[in-house]
Design a binder for these strands. Structure first.
Lengths: 144, 144
DNA sequence: TTTGGTGCAAAACCTTTGCATTAGG
DNA sequence: CCTAATGCAAAGGTTTTGCACCAAA
C-alpha cells in the first residue's frame, strides 16, 4: 500500500533498472500476453507447469505484482475476492465482462471519469481511485 | 451461487418463514442498522462483544450473509478483498468510501447508469449489472 | 419434540514473507 | 563476486464448514 521508495523503471524494456531478466519472469509475461480473459495467479501457474515450466507460486505472484505495478497487466477482484490478471490495454480503462464465459471488452468512459472526480470533489474526498466494472452476458452466451 | 430452492420470505419481518428469531440475529441486525460506514464482519463482531454480547464469528458471518441475501445490507469488497457490510439505502446507488476510516457517502449517477447501458448495448451484452465504487480519503482523514 | 441456530475449532483459500539457495550481470 | 530472484514452507488473514450442543417454535 505504501508508495515505492524509488521508481527506477526503464520504460522501454518495462524492466526496472535493477531488475534481472529471468526465464520465470519471461514465462509469466508470455503467459499473460496471450490471455484474452482474466485469470488467477493459480491458473497462470497451472498453465506454466502444464507446459513443463516448473515455477513456484510465490514467483508467479511476485511477477504479476511487479507487472501490475508497471501497469503491464490489469488487476481485478473477482466476486469471490481473488485477484485476477489480464494483459493490459493502453491507458486508463474499465471492463465489460461476460459473467458466463469471461470474455472481456476494454472500455473507456470519459463521462465516468469526470463523474467520479466530480462526486469525490463535492464531498471533499481526495486521493481518489475508482473501480468500475460492467458485468453481463455476451452475444455468444446470450442463450444459456 | 445456486438459486435458493424456495424463497420463503416474509417481507414484513425480513425473516424467512422457516427462520428462527434469535437474539444474535437481532443484535447483528441492530448493529448494522446503526452503521454509517462499511464495516467488516470482524468489526461488527468486536462491537457486539464490546457491548457484552458474546457472539461467535461464524454466527456473525452467517447472519450478515443472510441479511445480504435478503438485501437488508450492502456488501462491498474492500481494496484488500475483505467483505464490508453496511445498512442498505433505498434504490439503486453507488458508494464513495473513505479508505482510511470507512466513512461512506451514497451517490447516484444518472450519467454512469446510462453510460453502462450504452456500452453494454454497443457490444451486444445483455442481462447487465455493474459495480461502481469510488475510493478516496475523506476530509477528516486528509492529513493521515 | 423437532430442527434450525450457535459456537468452537479446524479447514480451506488466497496471498505474503522469511530464509537458504541459485543464478543473472 | 555481489546481490536480486527463486522456491519452499510457514505465517497471515479472511471466510467457510463439521459437529456437538442449545433453544425457538
Amino acid at each position: 500500500m505504501a508508495a515505492r521508495e524509488q521508481e527506477t523503471t526503464a520504460p522501454e524494456t518495462g524492466l526496472g533498472v535493477r531488475q534481472r531478466a529471468t526465464w520465470q519472469r519471461a514465462a509469466v509475461s508470455a503467459a499473460v500476453a496471450g490471455l484474452q480473459e482474466f485469470r488467477s495467479a493459480q491458473q497462470v501457474c497451472d498453465v506454466l507447469r502444464a507446459e513443463g515450466r516448473a515455477i513456484g507460486m510465490s514467483t508467479v505472484y511476485r511477477a504479476l505484482q511487479a507487472m501490475a505495478e508497471l501497469k503491464q497487466v490489469d488487476v481485478l477482484r473477482g466476486d469471490d475476492g481473488e485477484m485476477l490478471y489480464r494483459r493490459c490495454g493502453h491507458g486508463h480503462h474499465h471492463h465489460l465482462v461476460c459473467r458466463v464465459c469471461g470474455a472481456t471488452v476494454e472500455v473507456t468512459g470519459e463521462a465516468v471519469e469526470r463523474w467520479a472526480d466530480r462526486v469525490a470533489e463535492k464531498h471533499h474526498y481526495t486521493d481518489i481511485s475508482h473501480s468500475v466494472e460492467i458485468f453481463g452476458r455476451c452475444a455468444d452466451c446470450a442463450g444459456s
